[in-house]
Design a protein around this nucleic acid. Structure first.
Length: 801
RNA sequence: GCCGAUGUGGCGGAAUAGGCAGACGCAAGGGACUUAAAAUCCCUCGAUGGCAACAUCGUAUCGGUUCAAGUCCGAUCAUCGGCACCA
């Protein structure tokens, strides 16, 4: 009888929903396993075939862990604040709340049709006031501890979204989301002091089971470097402080460079002979966007500050000072000592401006290029540092600087504080009031949630203010502290706010007293396994680690880190090997696939498509192989015999398969796990029959991958209860071994014959058997055997001449 | 430029810890069943030579270590991802 996947899949999805089998209950007698996938942004396009790759993989892990007796939490929710919804709402004149509700409904039905074992009783939505009450609460705590502050600063302004972006959201000078130009704009912004956690965000990675490239990317993004701060004096008596990772090269500093925005320039205005030229340069630099400034990578530009000179603290030599836009105001001190002999950028600048280049580390030719090797060089022309290695010289000069009061040891980071303000409507309101007398005053906790006011128009304004600013009734309020007239903050939080702690809410999603009860957090956290996209490594993943560490510091959560293990899936590409997109016309619609082949086939195919971590192109023909696999499994019932045991000739195959599937799932090698099941199926099919026990075991092994068809077979064959109540099969190492093995016999490394021997044969026996083989005897005649090698269960190699 | 990853049949991809390269699947070709098609089942399927048993070559390129290299070492090329004047 043909398998009717449409009927069967719907039937079991309904049963799972009604029975609540996947609802996780806090049960301290059982070992917990918290399995997490990144909750989606419910966009108008609906589910992408990329989403189920991650969801299916962790669904398989969740289902297998349940069968292994774990108490599994596998939740799902919606990261629903954000710009696309707001833009769609503006365009179509529908309130974002309604757009969000509709999109969620669509997403949810699509996810249900794929048979994921999510605990829907814990569904959360970041736009629900009951949820964002706690997002706001965390913000108030950050504010209370001085980690949230408002600051006037140059920010990345997207000209199309009319909104501020975090540094992480600017990609190649354009807006990550809409691809439009990003310019710098000075605005007062809420900032979060993520830099305060920079060290811990790097150091604590050591204890985590994250894939290596995620760790590396985070480390590089934070960009920690060790060096020294050095004070140079000037002929005007000022101090210019620089940061350098190469204090050892101090004797080679032949000039200094200030960033065009450096405050000392204004101070010296009267003394500078070429102030017009200087101002013109500063003007030009100010009008360039960050992108332009970094793009002009080829040629160094700059202007000398004529009238002021600096004094190198180590040898009291007078050196010129320049301004140049290759020095950034936002990093270090906004000023550098230039060592053209040993820094590529300084070298280029010195060559262009004809400045002296002094070699202070030997080993290269500083007239040809900067010598930057720090491993092999020996200090020269450096007074008391001469003869030392770079490492030794660094230590010695830092000690000297400290002793002389001319500098100190210093660690710097590329990471900047997190720009937390957005001038848009569809986000969490920031629960702060600005009072002319009291300054920034937090709302009392009792007034949370501060709900987003309902408005008619949520278009962004050209003035750069949030649409909320237009709601004077809402904006004008009283100061919670002094009771005087005050104004509400009108900026909202970025999309990353709600997702920075959502995994905690799943532990106790309906709690009105706190973000989650201590009991729930103690039991469920940390997340045991978190899978998500590489694109979130320096955004969501870093932000949420930061928030979690903060919550740990204030005693809200019991662990230092939110996620024990982090893995990442590759993208599913279009059939032509390119990224799927509407404009390329290569988008595969998951609904159509489920309709044509069924959810089980879709799940199997997405897992079978290739290495989970790598990108893989979709193939509309390959998926048929997975459909055949499901159908062939179904027709096992046609060849079923009532025997209640695994046949002897298949026993070792079964144990090997159980072993392989068990381990492959744990290692996210779903493709080879499925291949192993296919191989076992081929082996069973060759015998023309299958016993009840064989079908029962096969069904359990296949269940995490293809939950619907296996439930149906289980029920039809009356194996008792549901597969979801079954026990994951154990394997015996002993039974995995075959009694007889076929091994290769090589002569000089080339296979010349094959023989079957006892698996536990000794080296002597194996070699004797090999030599007894007719073919091998013939090959060896007239030759001298030089060496004999036996690799147990694999091969014999005879070296002969 | 720096950091990281990858490179295997017509295609997607396998190959513990150096041990029979190409598992599993797709596509293709041939056959069975069928009035026919679909579905299903069976056979072939890296290249070259040979009727054949078999031989030689073959995991981006070049070289090395080893009884044995897709796997280890050195150099080169290509593709992808991240960072990018961070001193």
């Amino acid at each position: 009888m043909e398998y009717n996947f449409k009927k069967v899949e719907k039937k079991w999805q309904d049963i799972w929903e009604e029975s609540g089998v996947f609802h996780a209950k806090l049960d301290k007698s059982k070992e917990k396993f918290y399995c997490l996938v990144e909750f989606p942004y419910p966009s108008g396009q609906g589910l992408h075939v990329g989403h189920p790759r991650s969801y299916t993989a962790l669904d398989i892990i969740a289902r297998k862990k349940r069968l292994q007796g774990y108490n599994v939490l596998y939740p799902m929710g919606w990261d629903a604040f954000g710009l696309p919804t707001e833009n769609y709402a503006i365009k179509n004149k529908i309130h974002p709340e309604i757009v969000t509700r509709d999109n969620i409904a669509k997403f949810k039905s699509q996810l249900k049709a794929l048979g994921f074992s999510f605990d829907w009783s814990r569904e959360i939505n970041t736009t629900d006031p009951k949820y964002y009450k706690w997002t706001q609460w965390i913000f108030l705590k950050l504010f209370e501890k001085g980690l949230a502050y408002k600051k006037e600063m140059a920010v990345n302004w997207c000209t199309s979204c009319k909104c501020v972006l975090a540094n992480e959201e600017v990609v190649n000078g354009v807006c990550e989301r809409c691809g439009n130009e990003v310019v710098r704009k000075v605005k007062k912004q809420w900032m979060l002091k993520i830099t305060e956690y920079a060290d811990r965000l790097i150091d604590d990675l050591d204890e985590l089971d994250y894939i290596e490239r995620v760790k590396l990317q985070q480390i590089n993004w934070i960009g920690r470097s060790h060096g020294a701060q050095v004070d140079f004096t000037t002929t005007e008596g000022d101090t210019i402080t620089v940061y350098t990772t190469r204090p050892d090269t101090l004797f080679g500093a032949t000039y200094m460079v200030l960033s065009p925005e450096h405050p000392l320039i204004d101070k010296w205005a009267d003394k500078l002979q070429n102030i017009d030229e200087i101002n013109a340069y500063r003007d030009m630099a100010a009008h360039k966007s960050d992108f332009e400034r970094t793009e002009i990578n080829k040629e160094k530009t700059g202007v000398e500050l004529k009238g002021v000179r600096a004094i190198n603290p180590v040898n009291s030599k007078e050196i010129p000072i320049f301004i140049s836009d290759y020095v950034l105001i936002s990093y270090g001190t906004g000023a550098i000592m230039a060592v053209p002999g040993h820094d590529t950028r300084d070298w280029e600048f010195a060559k262009k401006f004809g400045l002296p280049i002094i070699e202070v580390v030997s080993g290269g030719d500083v007239e040809k290029e900067a010598y930057t090797d720090i491993e092999n060089g020996i200090m020269v022309n450096s007074g008391f540092l001469n003869g030392l290695s770079v490492e030794e010289a660094k230590e010695k000069i830092i000690e000297w600087l400290i002793k002389e009061g001319k500098g100190e040891r210093k660690t710097n980071y590329k990471l900047r504080d997190w720009v937390f303000s957005r001038q848009r409507y569809w986000g969490e309101p920031i629960p702060i009031v600005e009072c002319p007398k009291c300054g920034y005053v937090p709302l009392p906790e009792s007034e949370l949630p501060l709900e987003l006011p309902k408005v008619e128009s949520y278009e962004p304004t050209d003035t750069g203010e949030s649409p909320l600013a237009k709601l004077t009734d809402w904006v004008n309020t009283t100061c919670p502290k002094c009771g005087g007239a005050a104004k509400r903050e009108t900026d909202t939080m970025p999309q990353w706010a709600g997702s920075s702690w959502y995994f905690l809410r799943y532990c106790d999603p309906h709690n009105d007293e706190c973000l989650a009860s201590k009991e729930a957090l103690d039991y469920w956290t940390p997340v045991d396994w978190y899978n998500g996209g590489m694109e979130h490594t320096t955004l969501h993943l870093l932000y949420s680690r930061f928030w979690h560490k903060f919550l740990y510091d204030i005693g809200v959560v019991p662990t230092k880190e939110p996620y024990k293990k982090r893995t990442s899936h590759g993208m599913i590409l279009g059939e032509n090997g390119e990224k799927m997109s509407k404009s390329r016309g290569n988008v595969v619609n998951p609904d159509e696939i489920v309709n044509t082949y069924g959810a089980d086939t879709m799940r199997l195919y997405e897992m079978f498509i290739g290495d989970f971590e790598k990108a893989a192109p979709w193939s509309s023909t390959s998926i048929k192989g997975c459909k055949r696999f499901v159908d062939r499994y179904w027709s096992f019932r046609d060849i079923l015999i009532p025997d209640k045991k695994i046949r002897d000739e298949l026993l070792s195959s079964f144990h090997k398969t159980i072993k392989k599937v068990t381990h492959d799932i744990d290692n996210l090698k779903m493709n080879t796990a499925i291949a192993a099941l296919m191989s076992l199926m081929n082996e069973i099919s060759e015998t023309g029959k299958i016993t009840r026990e064989e079908l029962r075991i096969f069904t359990i092994l296949l269940n995490p991958f293809a939950p619907h068809v296996t439930e149906e077979v289980w029920e039809l064959e009356g194996f008792g209860g549901r597969v979801t109540d079954a026990k994951w099969p154990e394997y015996s190492e002993e039974l995995c071994e075959e009694k007889k093995v076929e091994i290769a016999v090589q002569i000089n490394g080339k296979v010349r014959s094959r023989i079957v021997i006892d698996a536990d044969a000794t080296q002597e026996q194996a070699i004797a058997d090999a030599k007894a083989d007719a073919r091998i005897r013939e090959e060896l005649s007239g030759k001298t055997v030089l060496k004999e090698i036996y690799v147990k269960g694999k091969l014999v190699n005879i070296v002969a001449k």
